[in-house]
Design a protein around this nucleic acid. Structure first.
Length: 165
DNA sequence: ACTCCGATTGTT
DNA sequence: ACAATCGGAGTA
């Protein structure tokens, strides 16, 4: 169950990878919505996004945290026994075995897909600024992070040095 | 060709 | 507080 996301708003958003236009890396974002955009960061991590708009309009939602529902044993294996299985964008990618090979994959198709919640819990949704985008000027203040209020699987935002804004 | 640094995480 | 680790993107 997806419990935390961030929106990235294409050409209008200095924090978005596609802000400066089309490059090889961000080309999946330019596809019609419903497919995966997976990128590699810090020389070791992957992050998983859902492309959201029509072709040529490169916006996406970063999946930052999940609450495990089933498949926990496999997640543990993929995570090498670590306690945190799905809190944090790179952590959940490791748990699910998601890497750049999934770029462009249609997310209504197995073996990796997203579906409407079977019995979604009643809950409030909170917003906050996005994590780790302090370089992006005033966009770093935009309330584009969304998470289920008080869900225990929300990723912990670490204290960071304040960049230019 | 070369430099800089990141939509992070785990450990100290 | 810092290391790990590398390729994308920008500059020349």
């Amino acid at each position: 169950m997806i419990v935390e996301t961030e929106a990235y708003l294409g050409f209008e958003d200095p924090a978005c990878h596609s802000y400066r236009g089309r490059t090889e890396r961000v080309s999946p974002m330019f596809l019609p919505g419903g497919v995966a955009y997976v990128y590699f960061v810090y020389g070791m991590h992957h992050c998983f996004n859902v492309v959201t708009r029509k072709e040529g309009q490169p916006e996406a939602v970063l999946i930052r945290a999940l609450e495990p529902v089933f498949g926990v044993a496999r997640m543990k294996r993929n995570r090498r026994g670590k306690k945190n299985l799905t809190s944090g964008p790179a952590v959940l990618c490791q748990a699910f075995g998601i890497d750049r090979r999934w770029n462009g994959h249609a997310l209504n198709q197995p073996p990796l897909w997203i579906q409407e919640g079977v019995d979604p819990p009643e809950c409030d949704i909170s917003t906050s600024p996005r994590i780790g985008v302090d370089y992006s000027g005033e966009a770093s203040d935009w309330p584009l992070r969304f998470f289920m209020s008080e869900n225990r699987y929300i990723s912990q935002a670490r204290p960071r040095k304040r960049g230019k804004r």
